[in-house]
């Protein structure tokens, strides 16, 4: 990597808010966004929240004032159904006004129920059909290498999404082309749309699969900020290899009655569940 080519980080991570505070704020915001709009996927947001918080407050190089700045790190949320959490992060950093979040999923909004790039600063690509993000990220990483740029590409996949063959096509390709500017993070919450991952199509041993494809793979507790930060600031783990982080997570993490409860893939907290959820998130 040509690190010396890279201009100064416009928003040094030291000046950013703590990832723990950010994660709490995202959870509060996303539960309100999804409940207001009666939108799905709150549990999917909660499992990836800590990963997003650490990435945006401690790892990614970006400038909210110039969302298309050429040297920014690229982030792709391939599990586009968890976009509410990503929108909340982007608004926290000022990519767009926080008021937009209040329109999430509503008529006339810019913020659709799957990550949408059109008119939304900070969203690199539209996702929502699973299995597109990693191939897109791989293309970006290849372009970055060919252009000898120093920026990096980070992509979050869900575990159920790993059923899609397209991911494994990219997984074969990236090590062959020595794309060590590419990092994939798998939100391994063990649940997909119709039940447990191990009952639908078992992925274990997941990290070994990526290793066998030529990736430098590590496992981590996906809610442990210090551990996440240590890994994410340490990529590439091996020169010449793309990095894979299997993040063990809990779907619905942060609100007890949503944890490991498939219902909250589909419905937001309703009625008195909303104040209960907010109370668990420390909102009085």
């Amino acid at each position: 990597m040509n690190d010396e080519k890279r201009p100064m980080n416009p928003l040094p991570t030291k000046q950013r808010q703590s990832s723990v505070d950010l994660a709490l704020q995202i959870r509060r915001t996303t539960v309100e966004m999804t409940s207001r709009a009666n939108a799905s996927h709150i549990a999917s947001c909660f499992s990836v929240t800590d990963i997003l918080a650490v990435l945006y407050s401690r790892v990614l190089v970006f400038d909210p004032q110039q969302p298309r700045w050429r040297d920014r790190d690229r982030f792709i949320l391939s599990k586009g159904h968890a976009c509410a959490a990503l929108y909340a992060v982007l608004a926290e950093f000022g990519f767009f006004p926080k008021e937009w979040l209040e329109t999430y999923y509503l008529d006339g909004s810019r913020l659709a129920g799957h990550a949408t790039h059109k008119g939304v600063p900070g969203i690199e690509v539209s996702t929502g059909a699973l299995g597109h993000g990693l191939p897109l990220a791989t293309g970006m990483a290849l372009a970055g290498k060919r252009d000898e740029r120093a920026h990096r590409i980070f992509c979050v996949l869900s575990d159920g999404e790993c059923d899609e063959g397209s991911n494994w096509e990219a997984a074969l390709f990236a090590p062959h082309h020595r794309l060590d500017n590419l990092t994939v993070i798998i939100d391994y919450n063990k649940i997909q749309s119709l039940g447990w991952v191990k009952d639908v199509i078992d992925l274990d041993p997941l990290a070994d699969k990526w290793r066998a494809f030529g990736w430098a793979a590590r496992e981590v507790d996906g809610h442990d900020h210090a551990a996440l930060e240590a890994l994410l600031t340490g990529v590439p783990f091996e020169a010449g290899r793309p990095s894979c982080i299997v993040a063990h997570t809990v779907k619905g993490k942060g609100v007890s009655f949503m944890e490991n409860n498939l219902q909250y893939h589909y419905t937001p907290p309703r009625g008195d569940e909303l104040p209960r959820a907010l109370a668990e998130l420390g909102v009085k």
Binding site: L130, G131, G160, E161, D163, E164, G165, Q192, S193, L194, G195, V200, I201, L262, H265, Y266
Partner: peptide, 24 residues
């Protein structure tokens, strides 16, 4: 991997006539 709250009864009743093929 779709059909939540629709297919569960059939899945239990007729497992040989049901398959969740996953997200693939």
């Amino acid at each position: 991997d779709l059909g939540f709250r629709i297919v569960e009864g059939f899945m239990a009743e007729r497992p040989k006539q049901f398959l969740n093929a996953g997200i693939a």
